[in-house]
Simulated assay, not measured.
Amino acid sequence: MKIIGVRFKSVGKIYYFDPQDTQLTEGDKVIVETARGVECGDVVMTDREIDEKNFKNPIKPIIRKADERDLKSIEKSKQKEAEAFEICRKKIEEHKLKMDLIDVECTFNNNKMLFYFTAENRVDFRELVKDLAGIFRTRIELRQIGVRDEAKMLGGLGICGQPFCCSRFLGDFQPVSIKMAKEQGLSLNPTKISGCCGRLMCCLKYEQDSYEDLLKHTPKVGAIVKTADGKGVVQEVNLLTGKLRVKMDRSDNVVTVKKEDVEVIKDGNIRVDKNELRALKGLEGK
C-alpha cells in the first residue's frame, strides 16, 4: 500500500498515514487522527510503498487535506498560544513557582492546551492549573521536560557555530555516552564534550560507527605490540591516521609507527574509570 509521512512539529518524529485517493505533495497540510486527537500536520514524504506486515499498528487514513478554514483555525491557535504563554508566565510568578515556562501548544480542535516547562525539582502546580482552566475554559495539561527537549524547542547556536542539530534536523534524541567520547580520543573535559543544554553533544553519535570500526583494526592504548625495533607498549593512538606512539621495552625510547607495521601481542582496553564517571555525572542524562 501507499503511505505518506506527516510531521506535527518542524523537527519531530514522522508518522505514517494512508492518503487514500487524495493527491498530496510535500508541504501540504493534512488533518489526521492521532492518539492525542485530531491534529493538523505537514506532509514530508509522499507515495512510499510499504508492506503493512512491517507495521505493528494499522495505518490510519487521513481525514482530509487542510482547507482554508483549517488554516485560519491554525493561525488563531498560534495567536492563542502566544497570549497563553504570557498569561501562564505571569501566573507562575504570582504563585511563586520555581519553574520555567518553555512553550505552549493548542490541539487542533482546541479541546486541550499543553504547557511545557522545566524545573529542577517536582512542582505543585495544582493551583496554577485551576487558574489556567478558569481563564481558557478548556482542558489544561502541564508537562515537565528535560534540558535536551528545552534546547530543541528554543533553538540556538552550538559551539560549532551552527544552529542546534536537535532543532534543525534530529527527529529523535539518540543515546550518547561517555564511552563514545573516550573511544573517539576526546578530552573528557565537560566543557569540551557537552552542548549548550549541559548534556553530551549529540554529534558524538554521528561518527561513532566509524570509530568502532577503526578500533577493531587498531591497537589500543596499553597494548603490547611487536615492532621492527622490538616489543613495546602503545602510549598514544591516532585512530584517523593509524599512527601509534610506542614506548620500547629495552631502550625506553618512544617511536612513531603505523598500525600496519606492528604485530599485536596483547591488546589494551578502553575503559572509563569510576573517578572519571563521577566527575562527569549527569552529562549522559536527558
Rank of each mutant, 00 (worst) to 15 (best):
Q208G: 02
G285M: 10
A119M: 06
Q144G: 09
M201A: 05
E284D: 01
T22Q: 06
A151Y: 01
C197H: 07
P190R: 11
I224H: 14
L101V: 09
N253D: 14
G285Y: 10
E52P: 12
L114I: 13
I14R: 07
M113V: 14
V234A: 08
F164V: 00
I145R: 08
D213C: 02
T218S: 14
S73W: 12
V233T: 15
G37W: 00
E276V: 13
L71E: 14
M113G: 02
F17S: 04
V44K: 05
K226P: 02
L244G: 07
N269R: 12
E127C: 00
R7P: 04
G222P: 04
R199I: 09
I87Y: 12
D252V: 05
V123S: 01
P219E: 11
P163H: 05
V264Q: 07
C166G: 03
K281R: 10
G198I: 05
V225M: 11
R36V: 01
P163W: 02
I14G: 07
G156R: 01
L170F: 02
E263S: 11
E263N: 10
V221M: 09
C202G: 07
E212K: 15
C160D: 03
N121G: 04
G134D: 13
G230V: 06
T46Y: 03
E33V: 11
L283M: 05
R137A: 08
E236A: 12
K205G: 08
G268L: 09
V257W: 07
K216H: 03
S251E: 11
Q235V: 11
F136T: 00
G232Y: 13
G171A: 09
D131C: 01
K130T: 00
I92S: 09
G158R: 01
V147K: 05
N238D: 15
F117M: 07
G268E: 09
G230W: 08
M248A: 08
E141Y: 01
L204W: 07
G158D: 13
E207F: 04
K76F: 12
K9C: 05
E276H: 02
P61V: 08
R168D: 06
Q235N: 13
K220W: 08
D47G: 12
I159V: 13
K98L: 13
E75S: 15
D100W: 02
T118E: 02
D261P: 06
Q184V: 12
V104D: 05
E83H: 10
K281Q: 08
K53V: 14
T138V: 06
T107P: 03
P163N: 02
A119W: 10
M1R: 15
I140E: 00
E93G: 03
K98M: 13
E120I: 09
E120A: 06
D47R: 08
M153T: 04
L128C: 03
S167Y: 01
L188T: 06
R48D: 04
G198W: 01
G155I: 03
I92Y: 04
L154D: 02
V237P: 05
V43W: 02
Q184R: 07
I50H: 09
L277K: 12
S187C: 08
E33I: 10
